[in-house]
Design a protein around this nucleic acid. Structure first.
Lengths: 205, 205
DNA sequence: AACTTACGGTACCACTCGGTACCGTAAGGT
DNA sequence: ACCTTACGGTACCGAGTGGTACCGTAAGTT
């Protein structure tokens, strides 16, 4: 019998090195960020991970599959601040975009170029990088709504997109992260007015 | 003597076909949008333009140079509405992003992927595609300021970026243009409040 | 008519890259 | 001990690509 822990296949022979797995994924992300998808070769990924191409192809059947896996493994986590004040929460949250961590966004931007025609890749990239910050902000605003600080009718869906979009665009078209001054201005002069603004229905039609 | 019109070199022999020049540039843009930079071959560009590779390399020394030229030649023009009302001007202007013409933005997105490491290309793409709409919006807001409709202290620089950034991000990460409903909501519930908002200096420190 | 340059087309070269196959060796299970 | 599979490394293949060279022909100038 010999119950194989919980899986089906009885693992015999030398087991795969989990550390190597991670090293390959790390090298993949690093190289794609620095050289782009087309400019990165599998041989170079293997070399940087301290192994050979065979070890790479033993795990992933194709280069694209490897890249998708690397993106999925990145999965940025975003802390959700809770200071009891919407404005402070927003200023905390915005720091996620002004401080480093541009790697994830650069990766996204790089991939999206060739991902325009690869749905799976685009989906993976967007899910791993684009969604977490928006979800965090949504939580922050949700709490402010509960506190009565924000009109429940506020255009949350659209407000949530503003800063990530600007940060993304700046990074992509200018090659640098969103500066803190601009970010602060966005919070105080755009986000907060929009959230506090009572829609009351603008002069429709 | 034979004064050569106004240039230096006396043009002898068969002149270059200007129509062919444009055909090559058009084919370049079209193919890059559809297949990406790496996925587009010079041979295919030539074939689609109805010519041979030689005619291409007679004009541009390298593939990158050709692409840069194609991007520069795109130069989107943006109409600047003037209805006498800020809100109407904004709603007119925003139509630029909701209606077709995604080609320019897709091109930008595609190129930026591999352009992250090519400054010249990035600069050309950003200048040709990113700047005109922002400039148009700036003009619209400038007129509103003159009319006293907008506080001169409004954060124009940052407001100008909001909609182009969101449109760009949506197009790039989701593959579709900004929908008119969201765009209208942005104008009424984000741009206008931000522009009318009296900064009055937020509770600093 | 003579000359010059562009034209569409093709053949070619040097090179790169994804992917496969195969080494001898290392590291586990039984 | 024996078996199995992963390991790092290398050699190789086939396909594709940017770029060059060279056709015979077309379209201009002098």
């Amino acid at each position: 019998m010999s119950p194989p822990s919980s899986d089906a296949a009885a693992p015999t022979g030398r087991p795969r090195d989990p550390a190597l797995e991670q090293a390959i994924l790390d090298a993949t992300v690093d190289l794609i960020v620095r050289r782009g998808m087309a400019g990165t070769t599998v041989a170079e990924i293997a070399r940087q991970a301290g192994t050979g191409k065979a070890a790479v192809y033993r795990r992933w059947p194709t280069k694209t599959a490897l890249v998708v896996a690397a993106v999925r493994a990145l999965q940025a986590e975003v802390t959700v601040p809770d200071n009891g004040s919407l404005r402070e929460d927003l200023h905390d949250w915005v720091r996620h975009f002004t401080s480093g961590d541009e790697k994830a966004a650069v990766l996204l931007a790089t991939l999206l170029g060739e991902a325009s025609r690869d749905t799976e890749l685009r989906e993976a990239a967007a899910a791993a990088i684009g969604r977490p910050p928006a979800a965090a902000l949504r939580a922050v605003i949700g709490r402010a709504v509960e506190r009565g600080e924000v009109d429940p009718a506020a255009p949350v869906d659209v407000v949530v997109e503003i800063i990530p979009s600007i940060a993304f665009r700046r990074l992509v078209t200018e090659g640098r992260t969103l500066d803190p001054v601009t970010a602060a201005a966005l919070v105080d002069q755009v986000l907060l007015p929009a959230l506090r603004h009572h829609p009351g229905r603008p002069p429709a039609r």
